Simulated assay, not measured.
Amino acid sequence: MPLERSPPPPLTTPLTPTTLFSTPQPLYTPHCSSEPNLNANMISPPSNMSPAITFRNINIKRKRSDDEENCLSTFMTDLRVMFNDLKQQQEDKYNMLFSKMDELRVTFDMMSEKLNNLTSRVEHLESERGESMSYIATLETKIENMEQGSRSTCLEIRNIPVEKTENKTTLLKTVLDTSKIIKCEMNSYDIKDIFRIKSKDPAHKTMIVNFTTVLRKEEFLEKYRKHNMNSFKLTTEHLKIGGPAKPIFISENLSSRNKRLFFLARGVANTNNYKFCWVKHGKIFVREKEGSKHIHVKTEADLSLLAKTII
C-alpha cells in the first residue's frame, strides 16, 4: 500500500488570518511518530482562535521530577538490600545443611564401623556357638552311652499285675517261674536286683530285672523271643496269675532318649514299609526286608534321612 497521500484540493478562498481562524478548515498533518501523551503537549490556542483547534508543542518534553528520582533510588536501594538479605539467608541455610550433612556423614561412618564390629562379633559368637553345640552333642552322646551302659544287664517285664503283698521275693519267684516256662535255666544268684518303676497303668507297673552279667540277660531275652516264635505267646495265664490272660512283654531296658528313638523308629518303619525294627545291646536297628542290610539308627536325624531314602 503506498504511503504517500494525494495532495489536498486547491483552496477556492484565499487563505488569510481571518478566514483561517473564522472558518474551520481540515488540518493537514504529515505522517510522524506520535507522542505518548498528546494532550500534555498541546498548546492552548489564542483567545481569538476557535477552541476546537490545538497546536502541538514539539519543543516541550516531560521531565522527571526530583521526588520521582529519589523514590526510584530508594526503591533500587531497598531492592538491593532485600536481595542481599535473601542471598545471605540462602547461604546460611546452605551452610547449615552442609554442616548437618557433615554431622550425618560422621554419624553414619561411626554406625557403619559399629555395625562391622557387631557383625564380626556375631560371626565369632556363631562360630563359638557351633563349636559349643558340637561339644554339647558329644557330651550328650557320652552321657547317653554311659546311661545305656549302666542298663546293659537289665530287662523290662511288662503287663504283670501288681499284687497287694508284693515284695522282692515274690518278684524273684515270678522271674524264676518265667525262666522255667521259656526253658532258660536260672538261679536266684543270677539276678542282682529286681524292682518295679512307675508306668501309665499303676496296676501294671513295669518290672526291672537286673542280672549279674550281660550274658545271662542276653540268654534270658533270647530264650523268650524263641519261645514266642516257636511255641506260644507268653501270657499271665502261664504264670498262674488270676484274672483274664494278658500277654507278657520282655525287652531291653532302654534309656529315656532311646525309648523315644525306638518309638519313632517303629513309626517310620511302618510308614515306609520296613519289615523289621528291633533293639539289640541297647542299639536300635531297622531292615527293609529279608536279606537287606540292617541300618543302625543313632539319632532322629537318621530317621529323617531314612524316610527320604524310601520316598
Rank of each mutant, 00 (worst) to 15 (best):
P2H: 07
L3P: 07
S6P: 15
S6L: 12
P8H: 13
P8L: 15
T12N: 07
P14R: 14
T16I: 03
S22L: 10
T23V: 07
Q25A: 06
L27I: 10
N37T: 03
N41S: 01
M42I: 03
P45M: 06
S47K: 06
S50M: 09
P51D: 11
A52P: 00
R56M: 12
R56H: 05
K61Y: 04
D66R: 03
D66S: 07
E68Y: 00
E68H: 02
N70W: 08
C71R: 10
T74G: 07
T74L: 15
F83I: 11
F83W: 01
F83M: 10
L86T: 04
Q90S: 14
E91L: 08
Y94M: 14
L97N: 09
S99A: 02
K100C: 08
L104G: 06
V106F: 10
K114L: 11
L115F: 10
E123Q: 15
E128C: 11
G130L: 10
G130F: 06
S132E: 04
M133D: 15
I143Q: 05
N145V: 04
E147S: 11
G149T: 01
C154S: 07
I160M: 13
I160A: 10
I160K: 09
T165L: 05
K168W: 00
L171P: 09
L171M: 14
L172C: 07
V175A: 12
M186C: 15
N187V: 01
I191L: 08
R196H: 01
S199D: 07
K200S: 07
H204F: 04
M207G: 04
I208W: 03
F211M: 14
R216K: 15
K217W: 00
L221H: 12
L221F: 12
E222N: 06
K223M: 04
Y224M: 02
K226E: 14
N230C: 02
S231H: 10
L234E: 03
T236N: 07
E237Y: 04
H238M: 11
K246G: 01
K246E: 09
I248L: 11
I248A: 01
I248C: 04
S251D: 11
L254S: 03
K259C: 13
A265E: 11
G267M: 13
G267K: 15
V268F: 12
A269T: 02
N270C: 11
N272V: 12
K275R: 14
R287P: 09
G291F: 01
L305Q: 12
L306R: 03
K308R: 13
